[in-house]
Amino acid sequence: MEVLQPILAHFNHWITIFLMVAGLYVVVARGNMIKKLIGLSLFQTSVYLLYISPGKILGGTAPIIGDNIEVYSNPLPHVLILTAIVVGVATLALGLGLVVRINEVYGTIEEDEIFTQEDDDE
């Protein structure tokens, strides 16, 4: 355990950054719109980790007040992220609605194919 200490201290941050960067990569590099939305939600869930990890106190328990419990984790990040999750699914639904509409008009959800169709029309 002693050897792992310096890694454990920032491991959560590193994984958070990895998820964030993976989401960013998918949003920028992939042309498929469903894949783009999945990348966006990867990015979003990494933000949940970013908020919740610093609120954790080792040896603590969930912030529900009970007898004989001394240490609780921080409840405030939990509240903020609860709101973020619900707003996240709302924006995802709106994005998927747009994808359905784009598919109806262009017959495809690939960015490149839509661009070539647009170029052909001109």
């Binding site: 954790k56 328990t61 969930a62 912030p63 990040p77 992220i81 609860l82």
Partner: peptide, 9 residues
């Protein structure tokens, strides 16, 4: 990470 409400959601 002790965020039980968030985990359920």
């Amino acid at each position: 990470l002790d965020a039980v409400d968030v985990a359920m959601t």
